[in-house]
Nucleic acid binder design. Structure first.
Lengths: 299, 299
DNA sequence: GCCAATTCATGCATTTCCGTATAGATCATC
DNA sequence: GATGATCTATACGGAAATGCATGAATTGGC
């Protein structure tokens, strides 16, 4: 290992990373919980230490130089590694052992959570995870779960809620079904198709009406209260159904119906007890869920 | 970006990295050019900040805990990223522009240097590279090249020489040749095979004799002073030849003859002027050559 | 079993770095 | 064009980290 080459101040790299990501020294200072003069000095010192100019001081804001842009890639890698260090250390830290229960819809439990749980198992082997897969909204107050993933903002004031942005859904059907029954070209064509329903998707039907699909609950001939069963019926070509794009993207053999139709948007919220939020164990799971479910989603 | 999670002291991570790699705090201090108490305090502070125990203090040395071992992987990634930052910054730094000439054997110039030169072009676009591919030993004193890759330690005292460890060579032949002529099972079988010679490989013949192959210069019927021509003849099945394992590994269609036979070892040295070693431009190329040619090689 | 060589831990003086306060500069808005 | 908001750069006092010197403990060799 060439120790001489990495003998510069690594904290100055973090200062550069935050400044480049946030756009301003002041913003970086707010993000890192430091002062603006400190960040400015650290970035200047890094420029001096590396012998390159990272930012062009134009007006009141900073613009990355080409060199700064090329360096940013590796600086991000350094920051990512720092994040993993923090994550693994948190998971192995003393006193996090115990059980964390997560409640989510059956669909999300089946299609979205497993890889996150796998990562959690690696990061924090001492934490046991219980998944409560249910479409009933569990009562966090009564400790039916520690963390809930819901599609509405909780009303109770003593719950901590953090928005995961908005999910999007479209109409989907199996390619085999569409090959057989024809692909609807206009919203009106939908009426002569078979719809697979999900018991609690009144709100989704409202959403469909909003985006211009004249759908009534009566048109649904096949339905299930279990979202996985519902989706399996769609996948096997029984009819058209509404599904979140995230899950649909994971399912081969299905395609969008009326792709031009605007998406049905729904909020996603991560919820936990306020007091539990001070538990390092729950905090760790909460933060990881936030990071992984937020990925690639507008916040 | 979750700035809170990377708000710990990154320099303490470097202290941990150096300590884990070097094995002792004192060694890490020597490597980083800091004092042993500083390193000790930084590692202790990192343990406190992350809430994990990294080292078990047993006797006078430190042993990684399981947590420390798992973290080391990500810490290394952070260090690698830091190294790349340093490398790219050095390459783009002011005042490195100019030409650096490297002399090496034709074989090494053709088979080993191109990818390194490609990386150098990316890292330091301002540096022009000249490769002097020759099996004559260039005279660095007379500025025939800035950096030389040689297979012997230079005698002159005013040259900076750095060992790249030992290379290894074996007998190789094209698979097609061996299919046709049969695979020798003992060193004695060699005598009835066709040998392709390299003009300046008297030392290699000595090496072959040392490892038990009764070879005399007379047995060589086909030879060339150009190493690339020599190797191409071997590759096309004309006969058996001696080649460095590094180059042979890059050549499909050739295989080792008498695989059990111990390797022929030869030293590899990187050489530059002492005064040129203070030039940042030459220094950069020298260090990159060292790192890349040393990779996977015993130092 | 003793001695020499290393290694890690601790006190103390000094240097360096950080945060607060403030000035200077720039952009948006009316 | 004036004003307010926001950003960067600089001065200064205080806090924190660093290096040196030293002590305690362990290992290896004779």
């Amino acid at each position: 290992m060439n120790w001489q080459s990495i003998a510069f101040d690594w904290n100055q790299v973090r200062a550069f990373l935050a400044t480049a990501e946030e756009g301003t020294l002041s913003g970086a200072a707010r993000a890192l919980g430091q002062s603006q003069p400190t960040l400015g000095r650290q970035v200047a010192a890094l420029e001096k230490a590396l012998g390159v100019v990272l930012f062009e001081r134009v007006g009141r804001s900073l613009v990355l130089t080409p060199v700064g842009h090329d360096l940013l890639e590796h600086v991000r890698a350094m920051g990512d590694a720092a994040g993993r260090i923090s994550l693994v250390a948190s998971g192995r830290s003393q006193g996090v052992d115990g059980t964390v229960s997560i409640t989510a819809s059956d669909v999300m439990s089946v299609y979205m959570l497993p890889p996150i749980v796998a990562e959690l198992r690696e990061v924090a082997p001492g934490i046991a995870i219980e998944i409560v897969a249910s479409n009933e909204i569990a009562d966090l107050q009564r400790r039916e779960a520690d963390i809930a993933i819901r599609h509405m903002r909780p009303e109770q004031q003593d719950l901590i809620a953090r928005s995961l942005g908005e999910g999007s859904a479209h109409l989907y059907a199996a390619t085999a079904y569409l090959d057989r029954m024809g692909r609807p070209a206009t919203p009106e064509d939908i009426a002569r198709h078979i719809f697979v329903g999900f018991e609690q998707n009144d709100r989704l039907i409202e959403g469909l009406n909003e985006v211009g699909i004249p759908l009534t609950p009566e048109i649904i001939r096949v339905k299930s209260g279990n979202g996985v069963v519902f989706w399996e019926m769609v996948r096997q070509g029984i009819g058209i159904g509404v599904m979140s794009d995230d899950v649909a993207a994971l399912t081969p053999g299905v395609e969008r119906v009326l792709p031009g139709l605007g998406p049905i948007r729904f909020p996603i919220w991560l919820t936990a007890h306020r007091e539990l939020h001070t538990s390092r164990r729950v905090r760790l799971v909460f933060d990881l869920l936030y990071e992984r479910l937020r990925a690639g989603r507008p916040s």
